[in-house]
Each structure stands twice: as structure tokens, then as C-alpha cells.
């Protein structure tokens, strides 16, 4: 360990119906998540690395090994690439037992993997009788049993029961923690990406927009798209200097807010839901921005409640929401500080 740098090299272009997928990055050891909306080319990226999709040009390889090189006319088939892939629907073989699924690509490590993924008691079951989380573990064990150089996971959380999401996510993080090879995970859910990966690359229309740690992306999103993917409210507006180091922004839809960011002209106003407080009566305080509007919706996620009023979504504890008696239709006030209001020029 130490001196050797494990590195996946990706640099290719591939035509899709509406746009070209053009990506270039290196992945050393560790886990990177690619986050982006569906249809942004995330799955295409994984399929191209695995050899299931053929790019127009570029180079894909691992260390000094070339898997695809358009100039040198190299295009190794998937079975020669040593890529472990976990498919979105897991693609388990229905006619084989858990054990035979795991041993399909590598008999030698099957026992070790069954043990590591806690599947020993299930090894004689057929995939049909497994839960979503168990299927995910079989898919992971099967991919890792081939002793791959890189691990690719396509929307590992997407086909799981939302009720078990948190539990399975914690379990997956646990299991991926033990994986020593470079791992690439794609997801449309920023929360999943942030929970599982130390680095997130945001992707849209086949291009990488911004790469950073989850907190970097939240603190300094490059544009409104990245901000909204990270879960922020993104509201269009027009900014001008208002003195005292403040900018005044007239929002589309008539409200007016202030920000400590300097900006002039068309901007995206970015506010995170957890920075927005909701009250019924206007209280005197240091908070500068207040939007008074009827509540459009109020949705409970366990101990958190998301309230949408006017152009903003606020996230508060379900207890506070109940205490205030917030419900659809009643008028309330969303308040947030000028210091928590980011302006990104458009």
C-alpha cells in the first residue's frame, strides 16, 4: 500500500439523441458519486466504462492498461475489462441460487463474499424470494467476487422500497467502506450521493458541471442547476446594490429579498430549506428576508416537515410544524437571513 496509485482514466465522447456525452476525469482509490437528473447520461457513462457502449472517440483505461483507445483501435469486450458492475435492477440470474449468482464470475472468492455481504444463510435461496436490500447485497457480492479493478454502481438505491431507504443506505455505506478499489456510483439523489461518497461530481446533459465534497457543493454551487440538485431553493430575480454591503433582489413573482453577496442584474437566488424559518406572526429580529404567502403544501418525512409557501420550501422539525399548527391554505411567513442568501449571476 502507499506508493501505488490505483487510477481509472476516463476521457471519451459519445453521441446521444439530444446531446453528446463528453467526460474526462481520473479516479484514484475511493468513492466518487456522479449526481444528476435522469437522462443526463449517468448510466451511459457506466456502460461505456464497462464496455457495453462504444464511444465515438477517446480513451478509457486502468493504470497502464487500455480498455478503449480510438486512436490505437483498442476496444476490449466487457469480459476482458475487469469491471465490477451493480445494475440498477440488480440483474440477478433468476434461475440460479444466491450462491451460484455470486460464484458466476469467480468461484474462488464466492465464500469470502457471501460471508462479507452477510449472505451465508441465504445462499440456497433464489433471487425471487429476497428483499430489495438482500438483492443489492447479492449484486454487490457477485460483482466483487470477480476481483475487479473498479466497481460501478448504477442507481443502487433507486429500485428499493422508500420506507427502507435510510436503513439500506447505511448498510450500503458500511459495505462500500470495506471496498478497496476505485468506486463510481451514479444517482439522481443528492442526499444518497452525499451519504455514500466523499466526492460528488454533478452531471447534466452529458457533461460534468462541478466536482467537490458534498459540503463544498452546498456552500458554493457553481450555478442554479447545481444548487437545486443539492436541494436548495433556486429563485430567479434581478439584483442591484442597496448600500450597507447588501444587494436587493426583486424576485420573479413580486417578493423582495436582500443578500450579503454582491451582484447586479439577472441572478439565481439560492436558499437552503433548513435556513428558512416559518412563523405565523412577524417577530422583531435580525432576520432581513420575509416572504408572506399561503402554504401550498406540507409534507412530513418522519421527524422533518417540508413546507412550501410562495417561491420557497422550508424544512422544519415536525414538532415545530405541529406546534404552529401549519396546514395547507393558511398564510405564514418564511424568514431567512441575508447571510444565508446566495446570489449566482445567470
Amino acid at each position: 500500500m502507499g506508493a501505488i496509485v490505483e487510477s481509472l482514466h476516463v476521457d471519451f465522447a459519445l453521441a446521444r439523441r439530444n446531446f453528446d456525452v463528453e467526460l474526462s476525469f481520473d479516479l484514484d482509490h475511493g468513492l466518487m458519486a456522479i449526481a444528476g437528473p435522469s437522462g443526463s447520461g449517468k448510466t451511459t457513462l457506466l456502460r461505456t466504462i464497462a464496455g457495453l457502449e462504444r464511444p465515438m472517440r477517446g480513451r478509457i483505461g486502468f493504470r497502464d492498461e487500455s480498455w478503449f483507445d480510438s486512436e490505437r483501435r483498442i476496444d476490449l469486450p466487457p469480459e476482458k475489462r475487469r469491471v465490477g458492475m451493480v445494475f440498477q435492477d440488480f440483474a440477478l440470474f433468476p434461475h440460479l441460487s444466491v450462491r451460484d449468482n455470486v460464484a458466476f464470475g469467480g468461484t474462488d472468492r464466492a465464500d469470502e463474499m457471501l460471508e462479507r455481504m452477510r449472505l451465508r444463510d441465504l445462499q440456497h435461496e433464489r433471487p425471487v424470494s429476497l428483499s430489495g436490500g438482500e438483492r443489492q447485497r447479492v449484486a454487490l457480492a457477485r460483482a466483487l467476487a470477480t476481483d475487479p479493478l473498479v466497481l460501478l454502481l448504477d442507481e443502487p438505491m433507486a429500485s428499493l422500497d422508500p420506507a427502507l431507504r435510510n436503513e439500506v443506505r447505511a448498510e450500503l455505506r458500511d459495505l462500500l467502506g470495506g471496498v478497496a478499489i476505485p468506486t463510481l456510483l451514479v444517482t439522481h439523489d443528492f442526499e444518497d450521493a452525499a451519504a455514500l461518497a466523499e466526492t460528488i461530481a454533478v452531471m447534466a446533459d452529458g457533461k460534468l458541471l462541478q466536482v467537490g465534497t458534498p459540503s463544498e457543493l452546498v456552500a458554493a454551487p457553481r450555478d442554479g442547476f447545481v444548487a437545486s440538485l443539492t436541494g436548495a431553493n433556486v429563485i430567479k430575480g434581478r439584483a442591484r446594490a442597496a448600500g450597507d454591503g447588501l444587494s436587493r433582489v426583486d424576485l420573479e413573482g413580486g417578493h423582495r429579498v436582500y443578500s450579503t453577496d454582491a451582484a447586479e442584474g439577472e441572478v439565481d437566488v439560492v436558499v437552503y430549506p433548513w435556513d428558512v424559518a416559518v412563523s405565523v406572526e412577524l417577530a422583531e429580529g435580525s432576520t432581513l428576508n420575509h416572504i408572506t404567502a399561503p402554504i401550498d403544501s406540507s409534507v412530513v418525512f418522519g421527524n422533518r416537515t417540508r413546507v412550501r409557501l410562495g417561491p420557497v420550501v422550508a424544512e422544519l422539525t415536525s414538532a415545530s410544524s405541529e406546534r404552529l399548527g401549519l396546514e395547507k391554505g393558511m398564510t405564514a411567513i418564511a424568514s431567512f437571513k441575508a447571510t444565508a442568501t446566495r446570489l449566482i449571476p445567470r
Binding site: A50, G51, L52, P77, P78, E79, F93, P94, G106, T146
Partner: peptide
Amino acid sequence: VDTGLLEAARTLRASPWRVFSRVALPL
């Protein structure tokens, strides 16, 4: 036969013959 299963078999380093005999044929 689900194409995804045939592709999965290939990423598991199965030769075309093995994909045919172990996955496509039984399914």
C-alpha cells in the same frame, strides 16, 4: 431473455459461449 442479464454476465467476465450456455439457454 432480459438483455440486462446477458450484459451482467459479460461484466462478470463470461465468454460469449458461457453467456449463451449458462444464462440465455436455461432462461
